[in-house]
Each structure stands twice: as structure tokens, then as C-alpha cells.
């Protein structure tokens, strides 16, 4: 059960799938005998398209799949990876689970907090970074590790993280 943030009421009032996304949506639905199975793929397409999943996108997914809106809201809040509010350009997700923690993840996270001036879930004022603690990323042998967006960075320490932050504009 994810500790999902309270649903924001902001974002655009109405959204439609752009042309390229509409093709992806059709292709995703065609993979299943039951359209409802495409709910996670459609939420991913929405997140790729708009950078986050605003309420209007949840309504769009619901209408596309002919599902009640509260069902889609319930699904989107169950999983941790859908951003239900806007995030920074680079999403820093630091693994804090045991293997990474044994190798210094707590210290690394503190370092990032100090460097960026934000805590867990915070976004820097310039909109560049969102920092988040996450659970095991399946990179335990390369701990401490962090995902930036979907990119894995392993065997991190303070200086490697500093160099990485410099490179992420």
C-alpha cells in the first residue's frame, strides 16, 4: 500500500491523447483480451506524455477504457511510481533498503538532502531535481544505488553523486 500524496486538484481541466500517444494506446489495448488490463500501460503512456499524471489524465484513462473514474484513481494511488503531482526534471530515487543501507545509503541520502536543500518528496526551487527515498531497486550488489528517472547508478558515494548532479542540467 503506497503512502500516496493527497490528490491535487490542479492541472489542466481536460486532456486528450496526442496523435503518437493515441497509437500507443490502441496498441496497448490490443495486447489483451480484456481492455481493462491496459490500465497500467495507459497510465505509463500518460506519465510519459505529460511528465506526471494529472487528474484530467486519470479521467482520460478511465474514459478510454470505459472504467469508473474512482477505479482508475484507486489503481493510480496503489502503485508508487505514478507521479500524481508535478516533479522536477530529474527524479532522484535513492534505495534505502538493507543491502544499500549497509553500504552507506543513509549517509548518501543525507548528503543529497544537504546538497539540494530539500527532503524526501521535495523538489528544488529551480525545478531541476525531485528527491525521493525508495525501497529495493534490485541493484543490491551495487549498493548504494539510485535511479534517476529509469537510469540506474550503482556503487555511489558522495563525490560520484556530486559529479552526477553537475552533469544533470
Amino acid at each position: 500500500m503506497s503512502h500516496a500524496p493527497v490528490m491535487p486538484l490542479d492541472g489542466p481541466a481536460h486532456l486528450d491523447w496526442p496523435q503518437a500517444a493515441a497509437a500507443e494506446v490502441r496498441e496497448a489495448i490490443a495486447r489483451f483480451p480484456v481492455a481493462r488490463s491496459a490500465v497500467l500501460p495507459l497510465l505509463w503512456i500518460a506519465q510519459r506524455t505529460w511528465g506526471w499524471v494529472p487528474p484530467a489524465a486519470l479521467r482520460l484513462v478511465a474514459s478510454t477504457l470505459e472504467l469508473p473514474e474512482p477505479e482508475v484513481f484507486g489503481i493510480a494511488t496503489f502503485y508508487t511510481m505514478f507521479n500524481l503531482r508535478p516533479i522536477g526534471r530529474h527524479h532522484l530515487q535513492v534505495c534505502m533498503t538493507l543491502s544499500c543501507s549497509l553500504m552507506g545509503a543513509d549517509r548518501l541520502f543525507r548528503h543529497l538532502e544537504h546538497r539540494l536543500g530539500v527532503g524526501h518528496g521535495g523538489t528544488t526551487a529551480d525545478g531541476r531535481f525531485t528527491l525521493r527515498r525508495v525501497e529495493c531497486l534490485a541493484a543490491c550488489g551495487g549498493g548504494p544505488c539510485m535511479q534517476v528517472g529509469f537510469d540506474y547508478h550503482e556503487n555511489l558515494d558522495e563525490s560520484k553523486v556530486d559529479a552526477l548532479l553537475e552533469a544533470l542540467k
Binding site: 481493462r36 488490463s37 491496459a38 497500467l40 500501460p41 477504457l65 472504467l67 508508487t80 511510481m81 505514478f82
Partner: peptide
């Protein structure tokens, strides 16, 4: 592609997730 939930490694939860 799942979306962040350890429980989906449990086979029946995985199937629920796959069904949407």
C-alpha cells in the same frame, strides 16, 4: 510493466495487477 509494488511478486497479486 508494473508500477512499483512489492506485493505484485506474489503470483495472485501479479495476476490481479495484470488484469488491471
Amino acid at each position: 510493466l508494473g508500477a512499483g509494488a512489492y506485493i505484485c511478486g506474489e503470483e495472485t497479486a501479479l495476476l490481479s495487477s495484470l488484469e488491471g
